[in-house]
Design a protein around this nucleic acid. Sequence first.
DNA 1: ACTATATCCTACTAATTTAGTTGGTATTTT
DNA 2: AAAATACCAACTAAATTAGTAGGATATAGT
Lengths: 134, 134
Amino acid sequence: MKFSTRTTYGLRAMIYLSKYWQKEKISIASIAKAEGISSKYLERLFAKLKKEDLIVAEKGSSGGYALARDPKEVTVFDIVKSLEGKMSPFHCVDESGKVYCGKNCKCGATLVLVKVQKAINDTLKGIKLKDISK
Amino acid sequence: MKFSTRTTYGLRAMIYLSKYWQKEKISIASIAKAEGISSKYLERLFAKLKKEDLIVAEKGSSGGYALARDPKEVTVFDIVKSLEGKMSPFHCVDESGKVYCGKNCKCGATLVLVKVQKAINDTLKGIKLKDISK
DNA sequence: ACTATATCCTACTAATTTAGTTGGTATTTT
DNA sequence: AAAATACCAACTAAATTAGTAGGATATAGT
Ligand code: FES
Ligand code: FES
């Protein structure tokens, strides 16, 4: 049971960006270099973050990325969700906690599934980007 | 971010077994059939559960499996851990919460990693097999 | 002793997901 | 015009997960 590395990459990149909040735009190349991440891969992760309006971009020479919102207001949940897609840790419980197992079974396992899901989400929602980017 | 299906399979099988706690031994074949799981696959999951002393087996005709311990005392954490292996949800934090990222970075991401890990484990440890197998 | 029914064991294959690359196009500053 | 940047789609590689094949070993009942 793991979060994929793209989540860690994404978090690191967002932390990096938050250091320049309301200061500079930062290029993917410089983040990739500083963090030791493949810049082409990071590019694709940024596409997801942008789609969820977590970052804004400016094209062209001297363009780059910047946070779209104040790090005090962005939660880690927002970031992780946009990178991981569906935030359901089990195949038969969806994001809202609704169960739709293949067998339509109402087995006790679902209790576990729902509780774990809630624990993860609550934790992620309780951490702001600001909290981790001092 | 998902638990693999083997975790759900394992939980379901353990719930099934707990219904026969101190009554009968149950064969893999019958569990597999009842739960709609590949019996050969379930066989391999049971090997893991047995290795962690969560179940006991008896060979031969009229053999089968049974819980090794009282469902009131087995936690879901025990089960999930034995099936998932390492219970670290991120690549740079181990089970004890120790960080050893490739870059040896001490970035704020680790705070997230450690908190999520703890939230999951605490949740799983707080649920007994008995609680989910009525 | 034979047979049927079990666990146990190893190695293979298939499917899926994740990670990363290639090769561009479009846009903006200098 | 040139350089630097975001943007985009398709491909490849690696890793993990899911499932299968083909047995060997042990026990109960006949
Ligand atoms: S395994 Fe999905 S509801 Fe029981
Ligand atoms: S990403 Fe592993 S410690 Fe920062």
